[in-house]
Structures are given as structure tokens and as C-alpha cells.
Design a protein around this nucleic acid. Structure first.
Lengths: 186, 203
DNA sequence: GCTTTAAAAAGTAAACT
DNA sequence: AGTTTACTTTCCAAAGC
């Protein structure tokens, strides 16, 4: 049987950073091609990179949030592109500002169908939220690692809230062993 | 000192008025949904617990009152869908669902998922279908659930499809449109669930 | 709390063909 | 009857209302 850990795929990485300098977003919006800036709606300027694909939110304080990257390497690469674009606008940006990964979203596959009703009752109604009238996934909050998993009837799952790729692996191991203990994975 | 005392009375009076409003709203919504008095009382008890635990702060009274009625119906085994309670509430469905989840979590209501079978007596009755159809629908729900078809599916859509299939099998056909109206789901959902169910039943 | 951004899972709804 | 698009849930940072 294939190890469910081998099916883990990173779908989105969110990271924050900053250039330690205040920005005039109005002029950045004018000079930066493809920038979306509507301060009435949201205080951040949106800048999208194509390769790798991501969306950067640039704030007046100089802080930046990058989302949509498929790996931690891609986040760094996307932000490198953003930093270079700012430098082209004569804005001072250090060689490599600190980048902090804030959230990683992964998908995985347990390889068997799940009886979500049995899991909701078996794992105990206290850490579980399963309301199929509102959403088809069962919400399972883990303490260690501190992540949230969404389990589906197909056996596919989504793990979010982790800060490092290993968190998802540990979460999958815990979920598998807990379901096995309860005889709900067979 | 006097001012503090007056303030306390004022807040107490306001709280009392808010509680009366919430309880009368629960009563009004329950009446228009034809929910028995015993269930309204359960809803009122949950509302008072939510008030004691200070869960109303930052939320609308009407939203908590509606969620509480939704929860009480489930606890008493005669669920109303969020669609149905939203129809008599001035709070939108999404808000009611969110508030219900919050209240259920905070009060440790430990609600089990709704069993689609709990909808069949009411839906069949509203559709003027016989006991035979109701029994057949129940059988379809049980059999297909054992085969793992229920996971992730909405209980109302699941029940609606089983009733549609049962009405065909018992020669008391109701159209998808008629059933969709009663169950508050779309015909597309009935078709999708129906196809899976009859296949699993080997029909 | 809300606003915006991204992404997956699977179900359902609305609007069409 | 079936398809397309859009929305539901989870996570997180940012600044400001």
C-alpha cells in the first residue's frame, strides 16, 4: 500500500516579509505594471507574479504578504521578483529581507473511502465539526502538530495551519493511526 | 453610587427586555414552522445557557435565537434545515449556520450529524405519500448509507432523492420539482443523489 | 468583527444550453 | 437532463475601519 504521506502535495504557501521602509503606494501603483490598488477597498496593493505564480500584497509600512506559491522555494523566488521590481522603481531593498512562512496548505489522499459519520462520533464530538448540510468536509483540529485537517468521504484531505512542510506529514501520520485505532480505516 | 445603581438596573432591564424579545422570536418562528411547544422550550433553555455563558456578545439576538431553535429541533429528532429556519428568520442562512456551530461548540452540545431518515415522515406527509413510500424511502436510506454513500452529502438532498426513488417504486410518482419544493433542494441535487442510490440498490 | 489574496477538497445552487 | 460558474469550509499575514 502506498504511504498516504507520499501523496502529500503543497497547494499554497503564505509568507510575510518587509523591506523596512515606508512606501508611497499611490506612486508604486502608477509605476508598477499590473498592480491593483484600491485603498477604499483594501489598504494593500496587489501585485501578481507569473513565474512562479503568486500574489503579493504590498503595504504602506513596507510589509509584504505573499500567497499562492506552490512551495517554500517558490515563495522565496516570487518575493525575489517583487524585491527586484521595487528596486527598479529606485526603492531601497536589502539583499535578502527575512521571509517568514505563516501558513502551508496541503492536500493528501488516504486511499480509501471514509465513513465521516462514524469518524465524527468515534473521534469524539469535542474536536470535530461535521455539518454536511453546510460543508461536505469533516473539520478535525489537531493539537500536535497544531493544524486543521478537512477530511472528505473520498479519503482525500486538506491540511492547513502548518508552518513547515513536516507539519503535514506528522498530521497525516496521526490521522491515519487514530483512524486505524478506531477501526475506521479499512 | 446612585448612578452605578441606576446603570445596573438599566442594563438589567435591557437584558430582560432582550431575553423577552429572543424568547418571543423563538416562539414566533417555531409557530410558523409548526414546531411543538416542547421543542420551543428546549430552544429557550439553550438560549438562556448561551446568555449565561455570554455567547451573545458580538452577535445578533435574532441570529442566536434562530440557531438555538435549529439546534433544539435536531436534538429532539425533528430537524428543520437551515433553509427552512432561514425562511422565517430575518437572519440569513450563512449567519445562522455559523452561529449554530459556535453555540454548539461553546455549550458542548455534542450534536450528532442529522440522519436523513428524520426528514422522511414530514416530507412524505407534505407530499401526501403513503406509509409504504415512507417505509421504502427509509429502506433506501439505510441500505445506501451502509454502502457508504452518505458521507459529505446534505441530509435533505439525500432524503429527497430516496423519497423520489421510493415514489417511483411504489407507483405513487411525484415529480422531482414537487419533492425539491418540499425538501428545499434543487432538482439537480435530487437527480445526482437518485442516480447513485438506485445504482447502489441495484435497481 | 470586516475588508483582500491564494489554494485544495466535494457538495450544492443558480443560470444556461 | 446535464453543464458551467460560483459559492460554502479550513488557515494566515498585512492596515484600517
Amino acid at each position: 500500500m502506498t504511504d498516504p504521506k507520499d501523496t502529500i502535495n503543497i497547494e499554497n504557501v503564505v509568507a510575510s516579509t518587509g523591506i523596512g521602509q515606508e512606501l508611497d503606494l499611490q506612486s508604486v501603483a502608477m509605476d508598477l505594471e499590473g498592480a491593483d490598488y484600491d485603498p477604499e477597498q483594501f489598504p494593500g496593493l496587489v501585485y501578481r507574479t507569473q513565474n512562479p505564480k503568486s500574489a503579493a500584497l504590498i503595504f504602506r509600512s513596507g510589509k509584504i504578504v505573499c500567497t499562492g506559491a506552490k512551495s517554500t522555494d517558490d515563495v522565496h523566488e516570487s518575493l525575489r521578483i517583487v524585491f527586484d521590481k521595487l528596486r527598479e522603481l529606485q526603492i531601497q531593498v536589502n539583499e535578502d529581507p527575512e521571509i517568514v512562512v505563516q501558513n502551508i496548505v496541503t492536500s493528501a489522499d488516504l486511499g480509501r473511502n471514509l465513513n465521516l459519520n462514524a469518524i465524527a462520533i468515534g473521534l469524539g464530538l469535542e474536536n470535530i465539526e461535521y455539518e454536511p448540510e453546510q460543508f461536505p468536509g469533516l473539520v478535525y483540529r489537531l493539537d500536535e502538530p497544531e493544524v486543521v485537517a478537512l477530511l472528505f468521504g473520498s479519503g482525500k484531505l486538506v491540511i492547513t495551519g502548518g508552518k513547515k512542510p513536516k507539519d503535514a506529514e506528522h498530521a497525516v501520520d496521526k490521522i491515519v493511526s487514530r483512524l486505524e485505532d478506531l477501526g475506521l480505516l479499512e | 453610587r446612585l448612578r452605578k445603581w441606576q446603570e445596573r438596573i438599566r442594563t438589567k432591564d435591557a437584558g430582560e427586555r432582550n431575553l423577552q424579545f429572543a424568547l418571543s422570536e423563538i416562539d414566533r418562528m417555531a409557530s410558523s414552522l409548526g414546531i411543538p411547544r416542547s421543542v420551543r422550550e428546549v430552544a429557550c433553555v439553550i438560549y438562556r445557557r448561551a446568555l449565561d455563558e455570554d455567547l451573545i456578545r458580538g452577535r445578533s439576538i435574532e441570529g442566536v435565537a434562530t440557531s438555538t431553535l435549529y439546534a433544539a429541533c435536531r436534538m429532539e429528532g425533528i430537524p428543520r434545515s437551515l433553509e427552512e429556519v432561514a425562511a422565517v428568520s430575518r437572519v440569513e442562512r450563512k449567519e445562522i449556520g455559523r452561529t449554530y456551530r459556535y453555540v454548539a461548540q461553546e455549550l458542548s452540545l455534542e450534536m450528532e450529524p442529522v440522519d436523513p431518515k428524520q426528514y422522511t415522515p414530514r416530507f412524505c406527509s407534505e407530499l401526501d405519500l403513503s406509509e409504504e413510500v415512507q417505509a421504502k424511502a427509509t429502506e433506501i436510506i439505510d441500505t445506501t448509507t451502509e454502502k457508504g454513500l452518505l458521507s459529505g452529502k446534505s441530509p435533505t438532498g439525500y432524503a429527497a432523492a430516496a423519497i423520489y426513488a421510493a415514489s417511483l417504486l411504489c407507483n405513487e410518482k411525484k415529480t422531482q420539482r414537487e419533492i425539491a419544493e418540499v425538501a428545499q433542494v434543487t432538482e439537480v441535487t435530487i437527480r445526482n443523489r437518485y442516480q447513485e442510490q438506485i445504482e447502489a440498490m441495484g435497481i
